[in-house]
Design a protein around this nucleic acid. Sequence first.
DNA 1: ATAATCTAGTTGTCTATACCACTTAAAAAA
DNA 2: TTTTTTAAGTGGTATAGACAACTAGATTAT
Lengths: 240, 240
Amino acid sequence: MINKHSPLPIYYQLEQNIKEMIEKGELKPGEMIPSEREWAETYEISRMTVRQAINNLVNDGYLVRKRGKGTFVATKKIEQPLKGLTSFSEDMRARGMEPGAKVLDFHIIPANPSLAEQLDVREGADIYEIRRIRLADQLPMALETAYISCSLVPNLAAENISSSIYDFIENKLGLTIRFATQVLEASVARKMEAEMLQIKEGAPVLLIQRNSYLDNGQPLEVVKSVYRADRYKFMIEMER
Amino acid sequence: MINKHSPLPIYYQLEQNIKEMIEKGELKPGEMIPSEREWAETYEISRMTVRQAINNLVNDGYLVRKRGKGTFVATKKIEQPLKGLTSFSEDMRARGMEPGAKVLDFHIIPANPSLAEQLDVREGADIYEIRRIRLADQLPMALETAYISCSLVPNLAAENISSSIYDFIENKLGLTIRFATQVLEASVARKMEAEMLQIKEGAPVLLIQRNSYLDNGQPLEVVKSVYRADRYKFMIEMER
DNA sequence: ATAATCTAGTTGTCTATACCACTTAAAAAA
DNA sequence: TTTTTTAAGTGGTATAGACAACTAGATTAT
């Protein structure tokens, strides 16, 4: 298991070893793992080296330590609160899901007063309207409508929006997204939303409106999303 | 700076020390901090102890390490949501409303496995269960159930909970609340909740579960809230 | 002047050990 | 039999030291 002659650090090998055992179900959620001293004795390594491996797994959410009792497999799968602004795709990947998108509509419309103000463009100016079903593991997770200024992102094409717009903005256009404001509210699914999301009409949904901004303060996009409540919870950590 | 006789661990003191320097601007983004050996020599502590402090700051995103070069203040701004973590009362006041509370229940119960784990107490240990209707401008806004460990806050009394528990914890007990994780999900009101909140059964509600922690990392409370969706939206700013 | 090598400094990994603080089971006392 | 004390086991903190791997500047060789 642990090869002391491998170029890989010993703590890393142990970390991967334990992680595999958890992922393969050899160690179940809530189950106590061997003590630090046992690992150290079994593999004839220092306890401090064991601690480093376990520290990392604790930080990553795989394990939970209880002083005096032992170390346990975390009962909640690595559902870590988001510590920063993420794209939908990044969010899904963080949850261990495969993100996807199905484009419903993509066209250019004139900005109404509300959107013009939010995107800081002239009323009536051209803006993209992008409607997509956001998928997670090939199943509908959210219905999303995004608005972006045409003058900010000229020549946006269909192939650019089949996946992550954040990815496109940051990696292809070299723009830096700095922050976003988000408003979350609870609602119930209307007929059209229910059909798209494959849930019952009247089922609870989480509405999220997001306004994101570039690092020069310029608005990037306005996004209105309807998430299925049965498959999505918004998780966040906030400092006092 | 570092008090070896303090009950606070040395690594923790150093960690807070460095973090303060960053937050006060004494250490700028991109700037190199003193080396591990320098800290160790300055404070006459072991280098491994220094490493533990710096490990934590690296994990929290304050610092970045470059092998062979040194350790640098992270350039990415630390997430500081505009609002930060607020108590219910602070939230309402920020919205221009007058906060209030009506206590429904206040008693001591044994901690079940889930709450015991979240509050880091022994299963079956005494914890307070506090159920309140939270008011805004004298109208029901949320139904809230809070759990606090009796060993952490001995002798909590009814008059302490008629308003803000955060206020009591911080100003009367002198404890410092550091951060909280929050999970938000959409749901619909069940019969009991609907009656308490004066809304229709089946009306949308926003469920918020909050786990807050003191600055020594110890859990303070677990709070489960049901907010009326028609009167409450959750608003937040997040940095990329 | 340029390239190669050396040196000093950094973080990264690992060892061995000691003691503290907590938990729980076992043993001793009532 | 019940209660109290002790012992064994857990993670938590800290020390001192050694060597590896990398970085960048200084020195030496071409």
